[in-house]
Design a protein around this nucleic acid. Structure first.
Lengths: 312, 312
DNA sequence: TCAGGTTTATAAATTTTACTGATAGTTTTT
DNA sequence: AAAAACTATCAGTAAAATTTATAAACCTGA
């Protein structure tokens, strides 16, 4: 049994196809066929049921895949230990970012990061929270930036910052004339929300719970696009909440519709998240430091008072 | 990096000598030298400091060894998973037993065990508790039978039975004439004890704590040999406590000096112990079942009432 | 300090293993 | 029924692990 064989097994298990798995492993298909057969012969079991199309794992195959993942991952950790010892921050690093954070946060820290850590080969991908969770679990992402808390067993979170929401209240809305608005002014059934507006942690206003309690309303929208929110809002479908960092990009006309909250302001928690196995922790920490440093200047509200969650 | 290379590293780390490690791995010394060099080159670090005699691990080498142990162990688990799935109980199984349990328990269950599980290649070794703990930690023993609780972080325990102690009171001792004796009759400073008479678990009389509280006595003895205990006792150095299963072997003359305890009787807890990684769990469970079945007939005292621990 | 023993590294040869390219055999798709 | 997609098999090859033989380094004790 070799780590390579286990790696091949994982590739086939994932792609359910020897040919595709072989490509991903940068070997030819006969290599996979033979190596996996060899492992199966040595263990005297079948890992894959090749009679099914697409190929399926056998019962024992499933168990072996779990253990194989474990072993392959732990083998990566050897290089990790070496890097840590050397103080080396480098290598490939796959980062996922959710759409509503990508355009505002990435430009702020990317330049600094690649300058400070030139040996890190960043591969950044815009992904939904759901995709991010899946990929971190499968080991296809090293880390991601998303709205938290996710409360996911295998995923750890490090809070980067709290981004206050700014109310966008179009003309004609009853709150439009009010200069500063208060959380208590909000009528949740009237607000268009971001789809990644997770349940908020203690200490941050809990919007989603209230939202869920009103499922019998006229209509619901959870959009992943800030632009959509604004346009729908302008159409008279209600006010919306925009993450603070997005408000700078609005044109002057739209800016007139922005209303900051009285403290305590509602906010979203944005975190760097990663698998509990803590691989590539040096890079993750490096990234956390860069972002934390940058964000301090960008969000004046850092020391904003944040309100306790509402009762259910 | 291969599992084999990691295995070689572990062998050298343990024996601190390439030549000896090579023998244990059943390869020649140049194989180890080259493979370990290759790994060191790939990681671009030195795992061993060869300038020291005997060879030492480097700082990073120590960390790598820890991780290598982990990986090698987890690789064994693949075969374990397969065996479990097949219901196969077999393969090499290294069992340690402490001296005072070996001669009485082993003959009772060995025949039954090898008959019921003929595919298991048992390798049994008589070892002290200390040696057992070390070897289970290093992975040189799959399991052991010892007096418990050990309260050791990496070692799990499964109680097999409670073996009552029988008082051996030589002629001339003040308690000699008393037919049945009581725990309260014992004067701890006057008792010769087994060295493996561990601190006892809740529910079993706690002898060792009392013993330790009297460290300023005339003399102390903790022997690993039952014979020594009896002989010293006969020399007038005090009474002693014999594990119940040993009493059957005494000649009639010595048997006259045995005094059973009134209930609740003091007893030692005997357990099957194994590493927390739970490798070869099928065999461990098989062994537990065999021993538990056998012991029921041997110790009539199974349902003996056992007293609470004494206060410190 | 020098011979003898012990140990690790190196070199060349050998065996073993992993991998490829070509192809045959299946199953699925159309 | 033909084409496409996929896996297994085979023979040849490249790569690797391992061995034998030997050199080099390092202790050890006379």
């Amino acid at each position: 049994m070799t780590i390579t064989q286990l790696y091949y097994v994982l590739a086939v298990a994932e792609h359910k196809n020897f040919t595709k798995a072989a490509e991903k492993c940068f070997v030819t298909q006969p290599t996979l066929s033979m190596q996996i057969q060899k492992l199966e012969d040595q263990l005297d079991i079948k890992i894959f049921d090749r009679s099914k199309k697409p190929i399926e794992l056998t019962e024992i195959g499933k168990k072996i895949v779990i253990q194989a993942k474990n072993i392959v991952n732990e083998s990566y950790r050897i290089q990790d230990i070496v890097d840590q010892q050397k103080g080396f921050i480098g290598g490939e690093f796959k980062l996922g970012i959710i759409p509503t954070i990508m355009p505002t946060l990435l430009p702020m820290f990317l330049k600094t990061f690649i300058k400070r850590y030139p040996k890190v080969k960043l591969k950044i991908e815009e992904l939904t929270t759901e995709e991010i969770i899946y990929r971190i679990n499968e080991g296809h992402l090293d880390a991601a930036i998303a709205a938290t808390p996710l409360d996911h067993e295998n995923i750890k979170e490090r809070v980067l910052y709290f981004e206050p929401f700014v109310a966008y209240i179009p003309k004609g809305h009853k709150l439009h004339t009010q200069q500063k608005i208060d959380v208590n002014d909000l009528e949740i059934e009237d607000i268009l929300l971001l789809e990644d507006g997770h349940c908020f942690r203690d200490g941050v206003i809990n919007l989603c719970k209230v939202f869920k309690d009103h499922e019998d309303d006229k209509f619901q929208l959870e959009s992943g696009s800030i632009e959509t929110l604004i346009k729908l809002s302008n159409e008279g479908l209600g006010m919306t909440l925009l993450p603070y960092l997005h408000t700078a990009d609005l044109n002057d006309k739209l800016k007139e519709n922005l209303h900051h909250f009285n403290e305590p302001s509602p906010a979203r928690e944005v975190s760097l998240i990663y698998h509990k196995s803590e691989l590539k922790m040096q890079i993750i920490e490096a990234m956390q430091n860069v972002i934390s440093g940058i964000i301090k200047g960008a969000i004046a509200f850092q020391d904003v008072k944040i309100i306790s969650p509402l009762p259910k």
